[in-house]
Amino acid sequence: MSRVSALEHESEFGVHDWKREELFELGELIISSGLKEKLPLVVAIFFKGQRIFQKGIEGSSADNDLWVQRKLNTVELTGHSSLALREKVDSLNLQESELGFRTSDLAVCGGGFPIFNKDGLVGVLIVSGLPHLEDHDLIVNSLREFLKGRK
């Protein structure tokens, strides 16, 4: 499989002077592509420690809220996308039970993605509801499209 790693995705987008209005737009962009294909997903955006955006499409449920929190925890803990943690764990051939911690508070899977400004981690983009790689890819593709449009 020739997927590029989650860490490479992160560096692709680099550092931006993010404004919350832009993040509203980005959130709507992801939601509209979800609606177009009738995907049962939730989009949540956290900015400077605050939840500034959340929408859930038909078919998603409160269960997804739990995953939003877990993906947020994972990105805030590691400073990287939740898929990066999964890739790290996979690369060492470990089971989740071998991590040395027991917790139901993290998500060792894709769907949480960090955004950075010049001072570091400034926000977290989250998609939940699809297979976890698709959650991740939807964020990455939407970011790519959004930033292209901004230039």
């Binding site: 803990l77 400073g79 990287h80 790290k88 764990v89 991590l99 040395g100």
Partner: peptide, 14 residues
């Protein structure tokens, strides 16, 4: 010590 898998950046932050 018990989690050689864990990236050091994550553990420092933790």
């Amino acid at each position: 010590a018990s989690r050689p898998w864990a990236p050091t950046w994550a553990l420092k932050y933790l």
